[in-house]
C-alpha cells in the first residue's frame, strides 16, 4: 500500500474536522452572542468550549489515525484469493476468491488524484462479499484492476 495514502487520509480527516469545528463555532457564537432566550444559562456559558474540545479531538485524530491505519491496512493476493485487512481500532479481515469476482472498480477522487493514489473495489455476487483496497498507488491499482478482471474472466464460473 502506498505511503501517500496517509497523506490522503490526513487531509480528509483534517478537512472534516475543520468543517465540523467551523459549524460548531458558528453555533456557539449564535448561542452566546445573538441573545436568544431559550438556551439555559449553563449552555451559554459552556458553548464556546464545545468547538474547542472537538477541534483538539479532530487534530489528534488526524495526527494519529492515518498512520495507525496505514500500519493495519494490508492486502495480499495469493493463489487467486484476495486478502485484505482494514480498520484501526476495530479490524476486518476479508477473503475474496478471484473466481467469484463480478466487478472490479477502480476509482480516484480529486484528493486521491492529487496524491497519486487510487481505491480498488472488488465486488462479488453478495453485497457482503465486496472488498475495498484504499490508498493503492495509482499505477499499481490500474494494473491490478486489469489483471484481476482478466483473471476473474479466466476463472469465472457462475460466480454466485
Amino acid at each position: 500500500m502506498s505511503g501517500r495514502a496517509v497523506g490522503v487520509w490526513t487531509v480528509r480527516l483534517l478537512m472534516g474536522g475543520v468543517f465540523v469545528t467551523l459549524m460548531l463555532s458558528a453555533a456557539a457564537w449564535a448561542v452566546t452572542s445573538l441573545g436568544w432566550g431559550w438556551p439555559s444559562p449553563w449552555v451559554r456559558e459552556y458553548a464556546p468550549f464545545v468547538p474547542l474540545v472537538y477541534g483538539t479531538y479532530a487534530l489528534a485524530r488526524a495526527a494519529i489515525v492515518p498512520s495507525w491505519r496505514y500500519r493495519v491496512h494490508r492486502w495480499e493476493i495469493a493463489e487467486d484469493v484476495i486478502y485484505t485487512r482494514a480498520g484501526w481500532v476495530s479490524r476486518t479481515w476479508q477473503l475474496v476468491p478471484v473466481n467469484r469476482l463480478q466487478t472490479v472498480d477502480h476509482t480516484q477522487g480529486w484528493l486521491e488524484r492529487l496524491f497519486g493514489v487510487a481505491t480498488l473495489e472488488v465486488q462479488t455476487a453478495s453485497y457482503a462479499g465486496s472488498s475495498t483496497i484504499e490508498g493503492l498507488d495509482a499505477e499499481e491499482a490500474r494494473g491490478l484492476s486489469e489483471e484481476l478482471a482478466v483473471r476473474a474472466g479466466a476463472l469465472r464460473d457462475d460466480a454466485t
Binding site: S90, T92, L95, V96, P97, A128, S131
Partner: peptide, 23 residues
C-alpha cells in the same frame, strides 16, 4: 464465496471475532 472477520476493540481483548460467511 468468501469470509470476513471483524473484531472490535472489546472483542479483541477476549479473543473473539464475528465471522461472516459470504454467500
Amino acid at each position: 464465496i468468501g469470509w470476513t472477520w471483524s473484531q472490535t476493540l472489546f472483542q479483541r481483548r477476549s479473543g473473539l471475532a464475528d465471522l461472516q460467511v459470504t454467500v
